[in-house]
Amino acid sequence: MQDDSFHNFIIDRDASLGSDHAALLVTYLSPADNILHAPAPSLGFAITPDHAEEWTRNFPRHPHRPLPTELDIDAETELLHNDIEQTSAQTLNRKKPFSPRAVPWLLHSRLGAR
């Protein structure tokens, strides 16, 4: 064993279910608390002209209604945001995070200097 990250060593003959060898159990304790991170926030959508017709055809997803009160306006605003998001998700491609591999070779030196 290298390092001191392995602990709780146990020799257990029951766990080997009758094999003539014992089962060995050991626990790896990561030095860092590797709780799963939340996914990165969305980068939005790639809006391109070739998707315009399809996007327009799918929007709005809900018919507009009269807005007599302030609460109705707030609710309609939220609905509108959701409509835009859902229509975009349905018709557009999501933007991808920056990847150095996508940079042309002629710009590599500039990328390194950044």
Binding site: I10, S19, L25, D33
Partner: peptide, 28 residues
């Protein structure tokens, strides 16, 4: 366990504990 050489302890970082078992299965 009759052969236990040290008792398992609870670690506060449960998410980071990985339990490893090694056993010879004798081709069974």
């Amino acid at each position: 366990s009759p052969d236990a050489t040290c008792q398992p302890t609870l670690n506060p970082f449960l998410m980071s504990n990985i339990h490893i078992m090694s056993v010879n299965m004798c081709h069974s």
